[in-house]
């Protein structure tokens, strides 16, 4: 059986509606025979990534690949890029504004949470060009 590939568009405009792509992915994963803990980890990773995309990058798209050994989530945006990745990975560091904070985000926990719940994470970013975050969640 080949890998299952899913693609989702994330609109940049409306933070209130963010999470729809993550919700759709979660429903798709639930139809597969995967451990609930793996689905939850993948959902949190994708959700935090989706929120980040809306807050910082005016949207983008997400490619999800479900293989035999891992779920790979690739978040691709053409946003402003991350000038200092180490700083961005620190818990509590944020450049998000009041709109994000009003919704319960923007506390500098997004990327750390994605790191926490994924088994592998790579950030490929160029200032002024965009950011690609690739996360793998192992299916144990």
């Amino acid at each position: 059986m080949g890998d299952l590939k899913l693609t989702y568009q994330v609109d940049g405009g409306d933070l209130l509606q963010a999470g729809e792509a993550s919700s759709q992915m979660k429903m798709a994963l639930k139809k597969l025979d995967l451990p609930p803990e793996v689905i939850r980890k993948a959902s949190i990773c994708m959700y935090e990534g989706e929120i980040n995309m809306v807050i910082h990058a005016d949207g983008g798209h997400v490619e999800v690949t479900v293989g035999m050994d891992a779920i790979t989530i690739r978040l691709v945006d053409q946003g402003p890029g991350i000038p200092d990745v180490d700083k961005a990975m620190e818990e509590g560091f944020t450049t998000a504004g009041d709109v994000a904070r009003d919704l319960g985000f923007g506390a500098g926990m997004g990327l750390p949470n994605m790191k926490r719940y994924s088994d592998e994470m790579e950030i490929d970013t160029t200032v002024g060009v965009g950011t690609t975050v690739t996360m793998r969640i192992h299916i144990a």
Binding site: G19, K26, R40, G104
Partner: peptide, 17 residues
């Protein structure tokens, strides 16, 4: 339990089962 009211509360609960 939360005092925050917006759709992201439901999304968060959904992601966390």
């Amino acid at each position: 339990l939360t005092g925050m009211v917006n759709p992201q509360v439901v999304r968060t609960a959904e992601m966390m089962d």
